[in-house]
Amino acid sequence: MNQQESIQCAVFGASGYSGAELVWLLHNHPHFSLSYGFTSGAREAESITALYPQLAGRCELVLQPWHPDLLPRLPQQVRVVFLALPHEASAGLAPELIAAGLVVFDLSGAFRLGDPLQHHQCYGFQQPVLEQPVPYGLAEFTELTGNESLIAVPGCYPTAAALALRPVMPFLTDDCTPIVNAVSGVSGAGRKAALHTSFCEVSLQAYGVAEHRHQPEIAQSVGHDVVFVPHLGNFKRGILATIYVQLKDGVNETDVSDAFHNCYEDKQLVRIVSTPPKLQQVVGTPFCDIYFKLHGRQLILSVAIDNLLKGAAAQAVQLANQYLGFAPQTGLLPGPGAVV
């Protein structure tokens, strides 16, 4: 890829939280040029500053309602498309964009699960069958060739859990089932108003116990069943997960430390930290911070990410960078700051 070439791109679902973060990251990216931000066809055209006044004077993109009759002209104007849409909407639109010759980075769950039956059980609709396999884009573990037509961007909880677990999976006892307790801010539920995500109603609580759709995604990513208990916290953004696993006899702290450092020593967006991470050190950034501590044969992992950035928009841009031959952290470090 010519480093001076500007890659024209579009964001679908640009009015939502993850979509707005994508707009801001791409607006500031040295190699991407944001041509369009699309919203639902039921909306009127409006400046993004009408929804996010904090962008006034910094990004004046006009969000346009999407209509299917725009599709024939879109490939003449953009090359890369980011979908920050509801799962079923992405499932319907992505094949049309691929057929038109566009490269799609999908932030929904429409194509994350490799098992169609499991997908139907989790999402309640039939997963589209595509000609090419869809890579699961956990960025630190994904190598893109630049020939893929669709890349599935992982969910926020699975990103945090998998980045913490994958380096140490070979050390676990045969009968160990990792336990993942994670707390997310209310922005993970999206921008649409709902009583259960109102700050006046939210109190720290578990939800989706033993049935959250991210459980099979985490299990798929780490290659092992897990127990996953998500919690909703009364704060705006960020995910803090605490994970418990049982280690084989003879595995010591040096083994675990070496595994993490060997895995992530050249990955600038994952930081191995010496104290349990706080949300404030990752919110508004593309970083994943991981802490570990041994207690006998028990390994305790603490991991923090921003659910809208490393768990969504920043990881999508990181994958697009890889796809197009740029350094993965391009346009993310130093970051321009978060929108929401």
Rank of each mutant, 00 (worst) to 15 (best):
G238I: 01
I239A: 06
I239R: 03
A241P: 02
A241V: 07
T242N: 11
T242G: 13
I243K: 00
Y244S: 09
Y244V: 11
Q246W: 10
Q246G: 10
Q246T: 07
Q246D: 07
L247K: 02
L247H: 02
K248T: 05
D249V: 14
D249K: 09
V251N: 00
V251L: 06
N252M: 10
N252T: 09
E253Q: 11
E253P: 09
E253A: 14
T254F: 15
T254C: 11
T254L: 14
D255R: 08
V256P: 01
V256L: 04
D258W: 12
D258V: 15
A259S: 09
H261I: 12
H261Q: 11
N262I: 10
N262M: 13
C263K: 05
E265P: 09
E265G: 14
D266A: 15
D266N: 12
D266K: 15
K267Y: 14
K267I: 15
K267R: 13
Q268A: 15
Q268F: 13
Q268R: 12
L269P: 01
L269S: 05
L269C: 07
V270N: 01
V270C: 08
R271C: 09
R271D: 03
I272V: 08
S274M: 08
T275S: 14
P277K: 03
P277D: 01
P277R: 02
K278I: 10
K278F: 14
L279D: 00
Q280P: 12
Q280W: 15
Q280T: 15
Q280K: 13
Q281P: 07
Q281V: 13
V282C: 05
V283I: 11
G284L: 04
G284E: 04
T285Q: 02
P286V: 04
C288F: 11
C288R: 06
I290L: 07
I290P: 00
Y291F: 12
Y291D: 01
F292K: 00
F292Q: 00
K293T: 09
L294K: 07
L294T: 06
L294I: 07
L294R: 07
L294G: 07
H295L: 12
H295E: 08
G296Y: 08
G296S: 07
R297S: 09
R297L: 09
R297I: 04
R297H: 10
R297K: 10
R297Q: 05
R297C: 06
Q298P: 06
Q298V: 08
Q298W: 14
L299H: 01
I300D: 02
S302W: 04
S302N: 10
V303R: 00
V303A: 05
A304K: 01
A304T: 01
A304S: 05
I305H: 03
I305V: 08
D306Q: 08
D306S: 10
N307R: 07
L309I: 08
K310P: 06
K310E: 05
K310C: 14
K310I: 12
G311M: 06
G311C: 11
